[in-house]
């Protein structure tokens, strides 16, 4: 009787401890997951900032005499592809959605850098105050994108390191896709480095 009680008590204590440590691990994962989500919001907002600059940029280069049409059409198309992305939330948890997002944004990056290279051939356009301001805003935005992408990767790395270390990995696995590994941005030509155009 007495012995049975002790065994039962021991069992209860072990279960309690297990539940508490489970809760602690879960909460730690939630905190890190939230950090990744909020950094993701930063990434989206700087990309949005860039997308918002495009209409003005296209209108400005259109106004220049005989500007090569194909380049700004390509930018406008890439911009609309980015606008059509409807990935919802949870992109960092979903490698397929993340890859789609990256591909669309990288497409816009390369279309933009081609356009900025072509602009070199139009000194009159380059010399206008409107264009040089736009260019500065574009460069600043590219730099912001690089900064936020790096911070996102750091947050994702912190999450993944915790998530994949033992014994947390067992808890994370228990919750299925709730704590999927986060995807990373890969450095890609033309998107990590702001397009460098001589002033």
């Amino acid at each position: 009787m007495n012995r049975g009680l002790i065994v039962l008590g021991g069992f209860v204590v072990i279960v309690l401890i297990a539940v508490m440590s489970l809760a602690g691990t879960y909460n730690r994962l939630v905190t890190l997951d939230q950090a990744v989500q909020s950094q993701w919001a930063q990434v989206e907002s700087v990309y949005q900032r860039r997308a918002d600059l495009i209409p003005n940029l296209v209108a400005t280069v259109k106004g220049a005499a005989n500007f090569e049409k194909s380049t700004y059409v390509a930018v406008a198309e890439a911009r609309s592809k980015v606008g059509q992305l409807n990935l919802g939330s949870g992109v960092p948890n979903d490698p397929a959605a993340f890859a789609k997002f990256s591909a669309a944004q990288d497409g816009l990056s390369s279309a933009l850098s081609r356009l900025l290279v072509v602009v070199e051939k139009y000194p009159d356009l380059k010399a206008t105050q409107n264009f040089s301001d736009l260019q500065a805003q574009l460069e600043g935005t590219e730099n912001r994108i690089a900064v936020e992408r790096r911070r996102f990767n750091e947050a994702a790395q912190t999450f993944n390191t915790t998530r994949d270390s033992f014994p947390t990995v067992l808890v994370a696995g228990f919750f299925g896709s709730r704590f999927n590994e986060k995807a990373y941005f890969k450095s890609q030509a033309g998107s990590e480095v702001a397009p460098q155009v001589k002033l």
């Binding site: 072990i14 401890i17 297990a18 440590s21 489970l22 691990t25 014994p167 808890v171």
Partner: peptide
């Protein structure tokens, strides 16, 4: 730490984490 409390070595009161 007691066997079974594999989730975290917190089981020993003041554990790894």
């Amino acid at each position: 730490p007691p066997k079974g409390a594999y989730i975290s070595s917190r089981g020993s009161g003041f554990g790894f984490f």
